[in-house]
């Protein structure tokens, strides 16, 4: 069993990461989940105005589930993240457990935070991918659209699709890199 460091506090690899992740997961993710549910609702009500309402609704539903899971995972991660200032604030003048012990706990909890946080990032990224895919499907013009209208919608569809594919490729590459790193470490 590996020894948990007992002489130092764990520090995030990027100091701004905690704020950045919390903004993405607790501000952006709920808004995007709500947007996905809204779009799925529109599809359900006005399906005849879209080319493929069924697949778009499916993608939007998966997207909403991914974003909600991201919020939950990030919540679980955040409960494990603390720094010495938090401990000072909470314990105040009451007797604190020894720093050696607190450092070990913070190091272990930091690992849990990292693992949960990574999961939240993955869920968020795949949420963005399904949102983009669903939007692209929703943007494709219905069969009865005028040609000018159809050109604009296909162009919008292609634009969203390219951006989505870039996010998907980056997310998949990151997942492969992590898997490779884990395999090399073990």
């Amino acid at each position: 069993m590996s020894q948990t460091p007992r002489d130092r506090w764990a520090i995030p690899p990027k100091i701004g990461y905690v704020n950045a992740a919390q903004n993405a997961h607790f501000v952006a993710a709920p808004l995007l989940a709500a947007a996905a549910i809204g779009i799925a609702g529109v599809m359900a009500a006005d399906g005849d105005k879209f080319r493929w309402p069924g697949p778009a609704m499916l993608l939007m539903t998966v997207c909403a589930v991914l974003f909600v899971s991201c919020i939950q995972s990030s919540f679980n991660a955040a409960t494990h993240l603390f720094n010495p200032a938090d401990l000072d604030a909470w314990y105040g003048t009451s007797e604190k457990p020894p720093d050696t012990v607190l450092m070990q706990i913070q190091q272990r909890d930091f690992q849990i935070w990292k693992s949960s946080s990574r999961r939240a990032v993955r869920l968020y990224n795949w949420g963005v991918v399904t949102l983009g895919s669903g939007t692209a499907v929703a943007l494709s013009p219905p069969g009865n659209a005028s040609s000018a209208h159809a050109v604009c919608r296909w162009a919008a569809c292609a634009f969203v699709l390219v951006a989505t594919l870039r996010v998907a490729a980056a997310t998949a590459t990151e997942a492969r890199r992590r898997q490779h790193g884990r395999r090399n470490a073990s």
Partner: peptide
Amino acid sequence: MSYGVDWDDDFEDRARTYCPLCQGAYMPEW
């Protein structure tokens, strides 16, 4: 995939649970 939010932890309990000889902290299963 996360299956809900996790409440099952008590920091104060953990922080007070350590080996009295070397101050090795108690690490729950993870």
